[in-house]
């Protein structure tokens, strides 16, 4: 029999705890495939933010460190400086990375810390029950924006990939989604690219993944995917915002 599909080796044999239709699981799988691809399981250290992804160490068989909420990139800075020979990635939500941890994010990016960042943008604070995030879309109803997000009161959704791309320290910045097979292929490429950048020592690599949170959006899984396509992507356009090449740093 020909093997046409198998579970990534770095993932353990346990079920994810995520809600039905949640895309965190898919993001985990893509990262796991990239780790397998580069055969860096034993070199990798995961720095895990506080959010629905906090149990990443239960699924990934890699050395793992839990960061305080928002501080992932300060923690990753310490890890990478201490162990430059290891491959370090952070896994962070939009509350974690773009709100409480924004200063750590921007400065780690600006220093060009040679780490990879996987940023799950689901437009809400998932773990705490669906409050407004810095990425919540205008008009979006959340538990703390019951009348919809209004720019005069709440400001605008923040576009991290574009913002970080302006910083010299950033080697790679891209936004991807997981709604169609084509998007999935692009997402896999971007995640691999992020690790490759780090392996080549090019600096900070950042992948923003638009992700469905059916539970806190009060939607069926398929409806939630449709929302990513119809509401999120128009505001958060997919694509590569920055890509440094080896020749750029020589």
């Amino acid at each position: 029999m020909k093997v046409v599909y198998k579970k990534p080796e770095v993932l353990k044999n346990v079920n994810f705890h995520f809600c039905p239709g949640c895309q965190h699981g898919l993001v985990h799988k893509i990262i796991a495939e990239a780790i397998d691809n580069f055969k860096i399981k034993d070199k990798t250290i995961a720095v895990i933010g506080v959010g629905c992804g906090v149990f990443l160490y239960d699924y990934f068989d890699v050395d793992s460190l839990e960061a305080p909420h928002g501080r992932g990139l300060a923690v990753a800075t310490g890890v990478k400086r201490a162990r430059p020979e290891r491959i370090v990635f952070t896994y962070q939500g939009d509350g974690d990375l773009a709100s409480i941890g924004l200063a750590e994010t921007v400065h780690a990016a600006n220093r060009g810390e040679n780490v990879s960042v996987f940023f799950v943008n689901n437009t809400v604070y998932g773990m705490t029950g669906g409050q407004m995030a810095p990425t919540t879309l205008l008009g979006q109803i959340t538990t703390t924006s019951p009348y919809g997000r209004e720019f005069q009161r709440d400001g605008y959704p923040i576009r991290m990939s574009e913002m970080l791309a302006t910083l010299e320290g950033v080697a790679f910045s891209a936004r991807v989604a997981l709604c169609t097979p084509k998007q999935l292929m692009e997402a896999k490429k971007a995640v691999k690219k992020a690790f490759q950048m780090q392996l080549e020592g090019l600096g900070f690599s950042f992948v923003e993944i638009l992700s469905a949170c059916p539970t806190n959006w009060n939607m069926q899984p398929l409806e939630a995917i449709k929302r990513v396509e119809e509401e999120m992507i128009p505001f958060f356009p997919l694509g590569i915002y920055k890509e440094r090449r080896v020749s750029d740093v020589l």
Partner: peptide, 11 residues
């Protein structure tokens, strides 16, 4: 805030 968390990583 960042400094103490960098320590956490390096430690």
């Amino acid at each position: 805030v960042a400094a103490i968390n960098m320590l956490l990583g390096a430690s």
